[in-house]
Design a protein around this nucleic acid. Structure first.
Lengths: 251, 251
DNA sequence: TAGATTGTTAATCGATTAACAATC
DNA sequence: TAGATTGTTAATCGATTAACAATC
C-alpha cells in the first residue's frame, strides 16, 4: 500500500549507485516540458546541428530561455558557458532522465475509432514505445487488423490483458473506451499490475495510491478554448462600449 | 496587435453590463477544472439529483473539497451553507462561465485517422460544439464521408477554411495533420481569423499574441508516464538495496 | 437551537522570472 | 582578453491547503 514514497527521504540524498548529480526531485512542471525539448533536439540532431544555445532551443520550444535553463539545471550541468549545449548529448541526457533508454510496452483497451487512430500513429515507435496489444470487449471486433501496414496489429480479447502485463510486455495502459467502461477497465489494468494509465475516456478515474493516471479529454480542451473565446468577446464588447475608439468598423 | 489585455485594467473592475459579481479574473488552473465539475454535475442532474455538497462533488471529480470550494468561489456564491449546491443551478453557472451557453463551431483540418476519430466522437455535440468542417489537402480524400451515421460529414478542400471562418460558422480550429504541416495550417487558420486552436500534431506552434493554442500530444503523455515508471523502478531498486527488508521476495 | 456546510482567510508550497556571477 | 552563454540566486507570482467564522 505505502511502498511508494517521495525521493527526498533518507537514502535518496546519497549517491544512487549510478552516481552523478547530488540532488534529485525534478519538478513535475519540468518533467512535462522535457519531452518537448527532447523532440526538438532530436530533430536538430538529425539535421546535423552540433550545438544550441538556451535562447535558440527555448525559442523553438515556446518557452523563455530562463525557464529552459532552470529546467535543464535539474538534470545536471550539461552545457558549456559561452558555447551552449551539445545537441546529441543533451538529447541523450533528457531521454535517460525520462526513462526512454529502455523500451516501454503499451497496451490499448478499446479498438474503436480512437484506438484505431492510436495504433496508426507513428509517433509512438519512434519514441521508444511499442504497442503490444489492442484489446476490445466486442467479439466481432476481436480478430480485426489495424495500424500502419508495416506494423499491423490484431485486436485481441480482454482476457489477453493479464498475461500481457504478467509477462512484462506492457508497462503502460491506455484506455480508449466509452466513459461508461473506463473505471472498470482501469480497475482491471491496476489489478493486472499496471501502474501507469493514460485515459482518453471522459471520466474521472479513481485509483489506489501509487498508480499514475494521466487524462486527455478532447471536450475539456474545447471548453477551455471556449472560455477564452468568450473572454475575448467580452473584452471586445467592453472596448467598443467604454473606450474612445468605435471608429473604423462600421463600413 | 495589442488589443487583448488582461481584465484587471481600468474598466474591468466596474460592473460589466451583465452585472452580478464584483471581481473577475478566474485562475487558469480553476478554468481547467471547471469542465470536469460541469460534466459530473450534468450526469447527476440527469440522474435526478437535486443538491450536492462540496465533499461529494470533489470526491467524484478527484479533487479536495477545499480546492473545489475555492474554485467555485471565483464564480460567485452559488451554494447554501449547511445544505450544499443545487446541481442544475451550479451546472448552469459553470456553463455560463465557460461560454457554453452559445454554441461554438469547430473546423478540423486533417482527415486522417485522428480527424476521423474526432468527427466520430459523440462528446462534442453534447457539450455545445458543432463540427462545421473537416478539411484535407489530399484531393482523393476530399468528398469522402465520415463521422457518426446520424451526423455524417463530407471532407472538404482546404479552400473551405476561409469562408467557414468568415461566415462565423467556426470559432475554434483543430489541427489533426502530420507535424510537418501543422505550422502552415495554423498560420492559415490565424490568417482566416481563428483565435482558438487545438493542436494534435507533435509540433510547437508559434502564433501572434492574442491567439490561444492548446496542445494535446500523445507521445508527451506517454513519456511523462515513462518517467514515473522509471522513478518507481529506481525507488524499488533502492528499497531492495538499502532498506532493512529484502525478505519475502526470493521464493 | 444544533448540526451541517459554505465562503474566505492566511499560511504554505511550487513555479516563474530577471538578473548576474561564473566561466568557457 | 573580450564576448558569449551557462547555472544559480533571490524575488515574485500563482496555486494549494487547512482551518474556521459565517450562516443556512
Amino acid at each position: 500500500m505505502s511502498t511508494v514514497r517521495p525521493l527526498t527521504s533518507s537514502t535518496a540524498a546519497q549517491s544512487t549507485g549510478r552516481g552523478r548529480t547530488a540532488e534529485r526531485v525534478i519538478p513535475s512542471a519540468t518533467v512535462a516540458r522535457l519531452p518537448i525539448y527532447h523532440r526538438v533536439l532530436l530533430g536538430w540532431a538529425d539535421a546535423g546541428r552540433q550545438t544550441v544555445s538556451s535562447e535558440d532551443l527555448a525559442g523553438a520550444c515556446g518557452v523563455s530561455p530562463a525557464k529552459l535553463r532552470k529546467d535543464l539545471s535539474y538534470l545536471g550541468s550539461y552545457g558549456t558557458r559561452g558555447v551552449g549545449y551539445d545537441v546529441r548529448f543533451l538529447a541523450y541526457q533528457i531521454s535517460r532522465e525520462l526513462g526512454l533508454t529502455e523500451p516501454r510496452g503499451v497496451v490499448i483497451v478499446g479498438a474503436g475509432n480512437l484506438g484505431q487512430a492510436l495504433v496508426a500513429y507513428r509517433g509512438f515507435a519512434s519514441r521508444g514505445f511499442a504497442i503490444v496489444g489492442l484489446l476490445d470487449i466486442h467479439p466481432d471486433t476481436v480478430g480485426q487488423r489495424f495500424g500502419a501496414p508495416e506494423t499491423p496489429i490484431t485486436v485481441g480479447p480482454m482476457s489477453d490483458l493479464e498475461p500481457i502485463v504478467a509477462d512484462g510486455r506492457a508497462q503502460i495502459g491506455v484506455i480508449a473506451t466509452p466513459a461508461e467502461a473506463a473505471q472498470q477497465v482501469c480497475d482491471r489494468m491496476v489489478a493486472a499490475g499496471l501502474r501507469s494509465v493514460l485515459n482518453f475516456a471522459p471520466a474521472v478515474l479513481h485509483v489506489p495510491e501509487g498508480v499514475e493516471v494521466r487524462k486527455v479529454d478532447l471536450a475539456v480542451e474545447l471548453q477551455i478554448l471556449a472560455f477564452h473565446e468568450q473572454r475575448r468577446a467580452e473584452e471586445h464588447h467592453q472596448t467598443m462600449e467604454h473606450a474612445s475608439l468605435g471608429k473604423a468598423i462600421n463600413a
